[in-house]
Amino acid sequence: MKCTFVPSVCSYCGTGCGLLFETIDGRINSTIPMKTHPVSQGKLCIKGWNLHEHINSPMRLKQPMVKTFGRFINASWEEAIQITADRFKEIIVEHGPDSVGVLVSAKMSNEENYLAQKLARAVFGTNNVDHCARL
């Protein structure tokens, strides 16, 4: 049996509490607060304590879905990205760049969030960027 404790940072809000993922045979089993973490000092809120749950959730989406005629249909990444790009283009041409916005997520890394705001500002041409932890 292999059991590991992987140090990580909670991605649910801007505080950045330190935690450990307890894995047993490669599967995340629980979240443990990191006692010596300078930010959280061994404490977590309810979101941090349950951080591992969405990873093994059967509800988790593992591939993109496109809403076609009111129903969600599985799609490939290329397809989904193409459709999204086409729709964005249409909307921007018709209503201007400030008619769209980008909502980024605490479940992404800092670098990915950076890229998302870069896409919004440099490609779409809008400052409408916000983050789920601020909602």
């Binding site: 049996m1 292999k2 059991c3 404790f5 140090p7 450990l20 443990i32 990191m34 010596t36």
Partner: peptide, 18 residues
């Protein structure tokens, strides 16, 4: 297995020795 502690990135963390 043996459950003890190990220093990881300057933090004493629980560790499972095998």
């Amino acid at each position: 297995v043996f459950l003890g502690y190990k220093m990881v990135h300057g933090h004493p963390l629980p560790h499972c020795f095998t």
